[in-house]
Structure formats: C-alpha cells, structure tokens
C-alpha cells in the first residue's frame, strides 16, 4: 500500500516538472505542442491546427513549424534528462516551478533540419535522442513522423549550450 502511494507521488512530481517545462512557455502553447511521458521517455505531440499550414495548396505543415517542433522536442528532452536526477532526488522546488519559475534551459547553438516529405495536415509526433551531453555542450538527434512511426517526415540534429549545473548555479547566485 505504501509503495503504491509512493508511485503516485513520483508520477505527480514527474508530471509537474514536465508540465512546467512545456506549458510554461507561451510559444509551445501557440503551436499546440504537448508531451506524452512513459517513465523517462518523452514523445512530443504537435496538435494540428489550420494556422500551422505553410502551403495551403497541398496542403502541408509549414517548414518553420516542423523545425520549431523538432527544436522544442530536442530542448525539452535535453532539459528533462538534465533535470532527471535532481527531480528524482526531490531537489527541485515544485512550488516555485508551478508558480512559473523555470530552471535555466539549454540554448540552441545550431539546428539542421532534413525535410524528408511534406508534413500532412494532421497531428505529428517527435522523439529526441541525446547523443552526447557534456558539461557545456550537448548534441541531439530528433525525428518526427505522422501516421507511421517508421515513415519519418523530418529529422534534425542540433547542438546546445548547457546551463551550469543546478547546484553550481545556486552557489553562484546570492539569495
């Protein structure tokens, strides 16, 4: 019984951290991006809306929307991995997070998108893989699909500047 309650607490904490990271950013809400979570695995979900269209004649999702969706999925996945240990150790202030104080997030250095086929006017999904995450730099690969998981419509790779470790940032910031 106690173990069951623990699991609920863990889930609640993970979902609260993820929700703060995702829903706390206006641009994510504008694009209609959400995330599905299974344990530590995240899948980005781009909920289709007419305003995401880039070519009304085909019609197809705007290339910039695809790029943004892949970039958001990369940053959230990277942040999630980076925060995981502190989150599991209960070292993240959930109250502050829910009040809108986001932890410092990785910054994009460069991002290269491969457009494999046009994005159809329907929901899209993306999963990012952190290839390497060092103290200062990280390299991420991300792929996106629509109806079929193995039929990608875009993929991307990017480099990111990592924020200073949580403990270091705390020590460096008075108050």
């Amino acid at each position: 019984m106690a173990q069951h309650e623990d699991m609920q607490e863990i889930k609640k904490r993970r979902d609260a951290v993820l929700s703060a990271l995702v829903d706390g950013v206006p641009y994510h809400r504008f694009l209609g991006i959400g995330f599905d979570r299974r344990g530590d695995e995240l899948t980005g979900v781009l909920n289709f809306e007419q305003k995401l269209i880039g070519n009304p004649f085909l019609p197809a999702i705007h290339g910039g929307v695809t790029a943004a969706f892949l970039e958001v999925t990369s940053i959230i996945t990277l942040s999630w991995n980076y925060l995981w240990q502190d989150m599991e150790a209960g070292a993240i202030d959930l109250g502050a997070l829910e009040a809108g104080t986001l932890p410092r997030l990785p910054k994009t250095i460069d991002f290269t998108v491969d457009y494999l086929r046009s994005g159809r006017p329907r929901d899209a999904y993306a999963r990012a893989e952190v290839i390497r995450s060092g103290r200062r730099y990280a390299s991420v690969r991300v792929e996106a699909w629509q109806d079929h998981r193995d039929k990608l419509f875009a993929q991307a790779t990017g480099h990111f500047l990592m924020p200073p470790p949580v403990t270091e940032a705390k020590a460096g910031k008075p108050g």
């Binding site: 950013v25 641009y27 910039g64 104080t101 991002f111």
Partner: peptide, 14 residues
C-alpha cells in the same frame, strides 16, 4: 523564455 521575454528560436526558424 517567459522570464526574459526573449522569443523562441523556433519562431526565428519559421
């Protein structure tokens, strides 16, 4: 970045 008001890189991509 809601704290600083800086726009998202994705909008620049678009």
């Amino acid at each position: 970045d809601p704290e600083s008001g800086v726009i998202h890189g994705g909008a620049v991509s678009a």
